[in-house]
């Protein structure tokens, strides 16, 4: 009797969190699954169609193309972003005023909204009168049609995204680097370790967890790329830069096929879950022996 009463007391403490968690996470998740099993628009009740939506998606070349685009752009962004952010963090990991100023500058792009970022990159990437075009012409080359050539739109999205997203991973790396005690580097110096040896054998293993975190966060984020694709290229030309989230946005709010869009969202959700869990598993296997 008393034990039961105590349990309810405890529940009261977590109730605010649970309520919020259920309302904004659990309910939409279940609702999404429910929607994906129905043919439904914004008005009125839907009709249950079972796994019809999923079957249609598998045969839908537009969806397939959007998945390929999403993977490609993620593959372009994540490695470059990780390496760049780490290089910047290494360069700015010192207690000087200049370093503090540059940390601020490099982080500042992260606080801009995607609208501003794409606007800026329109000015940079537009072949006529764009910054990059001017430079190209100044060097006597033909400007590259970044925003209209099917082979160049995904790189354009990747460049924009890297510039926009650099701040957070850089800060995470800086935080990781500052955890490394100074005497570790001193021990390495006395152990005859050169710059590269110190980096590979001391610095990198020490920030391994941060590295895993950055790669996982960025992978999950880039697999959900939407704003840049919609605003910079509108998914074009002819779907060459349509990402999966842009696809489901068009299906849901252009064609009003909420059930179909939800099914696409569920598939993307499973893919992201699968990819991040695989990364976690691959990098976490030897954690038992590590510290």
């Amino acid at each position: 009797m008393r034990a039961a009463a105590r349990r309810w007391d405890g529940l009261l403490f977590v109730a605010p969190f649970l309520l919020l968690y259920c309302t904004i996470l659990i309910y939409p998740l279940l609702k999404g699954i429910w929607l994906s099993l129905h043919r439904v628009d914004l008005f009125g009740q839907g009709t249950l169609v079972g796994f019809d939506n999923y079957a249609r998606l598998i045969g839908d070349p537009t969806f397939g193309q959007s998945l390929i685009n999403t993977f490609l752009v993620t593959l372009m962004v994540v490695p470059v972003l990780t390496v760049l952010a780490l290089a910047l963090a290494l360069a700015l990991n010192r207690a000087t005023r200049d370093a503090a100023i540059f940390r601020g500058i490099f982080f500042s792009s992260s606080v801009l909204s995607v609208t501003i970022v794409t606007l800026i990159f329109r000015f940079i990437l537009a072949p006529d009168a764009g910054l990059l075009g001017e430079i190209w012409q100044g060097l006597g080359w033909e400007p590259l049609p970044f925003l209209s050539h099917p082979d160049l739109t995904l790189p354009a999205l990747a460049i924009t995204t890297i510039w926009w997203s650099l701040g957070l991973p850089m800060m995470l790396f800086l935080a990781g680097l500052q955890q490394i005690p100074e005497d570790m580097y001193e021990a390495a110096a006395l152990d005859n370790a050169g710059k590269w040896t110190t980096f590979w054998r001391v610095t990198l293993p020490s920030i391994r967890r941060t590295l895993i975190l950055v790669v996982m966060l960025q992978t999950a984020a880039q697999l959900q790329m939407f704003g840049q694709a919609q605003l910079l290229t509108a998914g074009g030309p002819s779907g060459a830069s349509r990402t999966t989230v842009l696809f489901l946005f068009e299906v849901a709010f252009g064609r009003w096929e909420l059930g179909y869009a939800s099914a696409a969202a569920e598939i993307l959700f499973l893919i992201i879950l699968g990819v991040t869990l695989t990364q976690y598993w691959l990098t976490g296997r030897d954690r038992e022996s590590g510290r």
């Binding site: 005497d183 021990a187 390495a188 020490s206």
Partner: peptide, 13 residues
């Protein structure tokens, strides 16, 4: 060769 106050062993090795 030096022995550091907080040992400074490489934790991942």
């Amino acid at each position: 060769a030096m022995v550091f106050q907080h040992y400074a062993l490489y934790p991942h090795m």
